[in-house]
Amino acid sequence: MEEVKVLNQIISQTIDTVSTSREKIFEIGERSRNEHAYLSKELEQTKQKVVEVIDKVDKSSLHARHARNRLAKVSKEFQSYTNDEVRVAYEQASEYQVEMAVLQQEEKLLRTRRDDIERRLKNLQDTISRAEQLSVQMSVVFDFLSSDLKKVGEIIEDAKEKQSFGLKIIEAQEEERGRLSREIHDGPAQMMANVMLHSELIERIYQEKGIHEALKEIRGLRKMVRSSLAEVRRIIYDLRPMALEDLGLIPTLRKYLENIEERHGLTVHFKHLGIETRLEQHFEIAVFRLIQEAVQNAIKHASPTEVLVKIEMKRNNVMVVIKDDGVGFNPSTKKDSSFGIIGMKERVNMLNGAITIQSEIEQGTNILIQLPVTTV
């Protein structure tokens, strides 16, 4: 009994340590993201300054060359010019030479600063990626240590299977949380930050230019808030389309693809063949997620102009085709979209189905999914 108490104390202390470390990793990631955003803006400004200084150097070099030619002519024909003309020619040549030297030094400093910022941005990006990876890993450890796996243990007798099963569940949850966190950070959170900055700008405009100019900015702010609200609704819808439970798979898919067509400005063809019947809820959700993942992959990585989604429902099976006319890819080469494809394959395997992916560079992508089903 005493040994169990000591073991519990050790686990509790370990959980506290992991929790603290996870928070510190998150703070490091946030600071790195903020610094990355600031330096990215500074890099753009520095690049613009480099272009401007180079232009000035070219003009100054041209002026300096003309001034030197003028001075050479005056020196050669010294007797033909007054003392003032000689002095002016000499001073102009000297001034342009000094100006060009100053500009060249400024260009050198700006180029050095630009290169330094680019190196820092690369290091920050590595830090951000590492922090995100560590955060997920620490969360997996934290959840695994703090979760009660007794009920799982009753089902899975072997200890190794229990550990593997628990980790897979937690990893899937953390990956989904990470994806949602990034969507909120890059979407609504960023928009709300812009709203805050815009509101401060409106206050300043009101004080400096009056109510009419401020009202113009308020109209722009209203559009920004409306856009933010639409993004929040989209994220909520992507988490769990409520129409799926009420209307069923086919009407929900039709509505989702119509929204995709409006949001991304591409043509989406949706075809439904065979019977239209309700399926088991978990199966409808799985089919919806598979189509959603395939369409999102196409939009994100393939830049298509048209997407075809066809679903054929028979009594004992469902066949789904998702086809796009995008840039395509080499299936044997690892791409950024490979994680989504792996997730689709795992979901299809869980349903005892089969998935075939055909793609070639500049030839689009064709995904065929076949799933055995039982109706409600």
Rank of each mutant, 00 (worst) to 15 (best):
K335E: 13
D246F: 01
V318I: 10
L249E: 02
A298H: 10
L247D: 15
Q358E: 15
R240N: 08
Y256W: 08
I357Y: 15
V348E: 07
N352Y: 13
G353K: 06
F288G: 00
M344N: 06
R234Y: 03
R263G: 01
I235T: 04
K323A: 05
I322E: 04
R347P: 04
E346F: 03
L253P: 03
L308Q: 14
S338F: 06
R263E: 09
I341K: 07
F339H: 03
R278I: 03
G328S: 13
D336L: 14
M313Y: 08
I311E: 13
R289M: 05
I285P: 03
S338D: 14
E276W: 00
P251G: 07
G326K: 00
I275Q: 06
I285N: 04
E261R: 07
P304Q: 02
T356G: 11
K314Y: 02
R263W: 06
K314Q: 10
M319T: 08
K255E: 07
E258P: 00
G326D: 02
L351A: 15
G353F: 00
H272P: 10
G326R: 02
P251R: 05
L308I: 06
Y256R: 13
L266F: 11
L239V: 05
K310H: 15
T305M: 04
M350D: 08
I299P: 00
R254W: 07
I275M: 04
I235A: 13
N317Y: 14
I285L: 09
Y256L: 01
F329A: 04
I311W: 15
M313K: 10
D238G: 01
M319Q: 12
I275G: 00
D238N: 14
A302D: 15
A302T: 09
S332G: 04
N330D: 12
S338V: 07
N317D: 11
